[in-house]
């Protein structure tokens, strides 16, 4: 374990009262920060100080703080979830920073993710995309035995890899085009890879892609920034699969998307 260090940092934080008002960067000094703290704990400490001074604490989204709920965000020094690859902001520790460093903290930037306060954005666009078709239409009960359909382990594993997406939006934040394709393709892939997803495979791909476009996310230019910044390592192959599913549905299948 590296020795615990104490450091003083300069934070440049985006402050914005609400969706409608203009925001600006505010410089805040964070002193006596331990290298053992997580990034969000550092912000907690800053917020406690602000509160004691009677100033409005910085609003940021977070919940589980173990890297799985996907609620935390933050664009830190130019990168979603900060400088470490394969981590969410809540799992980023201050040992990745050094004394005297200036840290720029911004919200995710995308037309489809409007800032609602300070560093928190509205990611309900992701919800609507999933509602458009990210499911298998089965009712509770009346389903076959879990072992009735054997699923080859490689397919199951690959579907699982796609299914681990935590829906944080780092892919959108990292992409220079604010494209949501990594997210959408991971969802489409999970079902495309499993026998359970076959019945609605092509309707799903169309419905989800079209909802994605309606939300105003950008197009993919294959910079691969999304893949590099994804905290759970969702692969770019998913996007290729989505393209395949979508073109296949559009050009070769008869059924169109259920509206």
């Amino acid at each position: 374990m590296s020795e615990e260090r104490t450091m003083n940092l300069t934070l440049k934080v985006w402050r914005q009262k609400n969706e409608n008002e203009k925001g600006k960067f505010v410089t805040i000094q964070a002193n006596g920060i331990s290298s053992d703290m997580s990034f969000l704990e550092m912000l907690d400490v800053v917020n406690e100080d602000l509160t004691r001074k009677g100033e409005d604490p910085i609003y940021f989204d977070h919940d589980c703080r173990e890297g799985i709920c996907g609620m935390c965000s933050l664009h830190i020094n130019g990168r979603p979830h900060g400088p470490k690859q394969g981590t969410t902001t809540c799992q980023l520790h201050m040992r990745s920073f050094h004394d005297g460093q200036t840290i720029v903290i911004e919200p995710w930037r995308a037309a489809a993710f409007p800032v609602i306060k300070d560093l928190a954005v509205d990611r309900t666009a992701f919800e609507r995309i999933q509602q458009a078709g990210g499911y298998v239409s089965v009712n509770t009960g009346g389903v076959p035995d879990g072992n009735a359909i054997p699923i080859p382990k490689p397919s199951a594993d690959e579907a699982f890899e796609s299914a681990t997406c935590i829906g944080c939006g780092a892919c959108v934040a990292a992409c220079k085009n604010a494209s949501a394709m990594l997210f959408v393709s991971a969802k489409i892939s999970q079902y495309a890879l499993l026998p359970q997803g076959q019945a609605e495979r092509y309707q799903r791909a169309q419905a989800m892609v079209e909802q994605m476009d309606r939300e105003g996310f950008g197009a993919c230019t294959v910079t691969k920034a999304c893949e590099a910044e994804c905290p759970v390592g969702i692969k770019l192959t998913n996007i290729a699969r989505m393209n395949r599913e979508y073109f296949n549905a559009k050009f070769f299948k008869e059924k169109t998307a259920h509206s």
Binding site: K12, W14, F25, H75, N77, G78, R79, P83, V104, E106, R109, A110, A111, A112, A174, K176, N177, A178, S179, G216, F217, G218, T223, K224, A225, A228, E229
Partner: peptide, 14 residues
């Protein structure tokens, strides 16, 4: 799709 850009964008890192 991104009307407001980032003040700091480290595209070279990813």
């Amino acid at each position: 799709a991104r009307p407001i850009g980032y003040a700091s964008f480290a595209g070279d890192k990813n």
